[in-house]
Design a protein around this nucleic acid. Structure first.
Length: 118
DNA sequence: ATAGTGACTCCAC
DNA sequence: CGTGGAGCCACTA
């Protein structure tokens, strides 16, 4: 059995999933929670991102809400930063919104599951 | 133990 | 599209 899996905390699972979101794509808090095996815990994902160590260099900006919108309030520094980071990698952001049908990450579940250590 | 607070989500209007 | 409300869960006071 994989010892790494048994030691991985819920928050670490979330960090792992977020780290798998490819450049130029986005995912939602709820989706990340689902993939991490934590259904119904979207709010926990936002907390995990806030507490994530800088050294992990997580692509936190690729996580938005289920409506395709950036969850920070407009006219705030985080809002602008996230918008910029997304645009830098080719994701279109208009009025804080991303067209999910165009940029949402749709991993091949069969393949993804095999890569997860849990 | 109770109440308030989110980088959330879903659904009804 | 906007709004409101209920449900959600971990954390804090």
């Amino acid at each position: 059995m994989n010892s790494t899996a048994s030691k991985m905390s819920p928050m670490e699972k979330i960090w792992l999933i977020v780290g798998m979101i490819p450049t130029g794509s986005v995912s939602s808090y709820g989706k990340v929670a689902d993939l991490a095996g934590l259904p119904g815990r979207a709010r926990y994902v936002s907390k995990a991102l806030k507490l994530a160590p800088e050294t992990l260099n997580l692509p936190w900006h690729r996580v938005i809400n289920s409506q395709g919108k950036i969850s920070f309030k407009q006219n705030t520094q985080p809002f602008h930063t996230q918008t910029e980071l997304l645009r830098l990698e080719g994701v279109e952001v208009n009025s804080g919104k991303v067209i999910l049908s165009e940029f949402e990450w749709k991993p091949d579940m069969a393949t993804l599951v095999l890569q997860l250590p849990f």
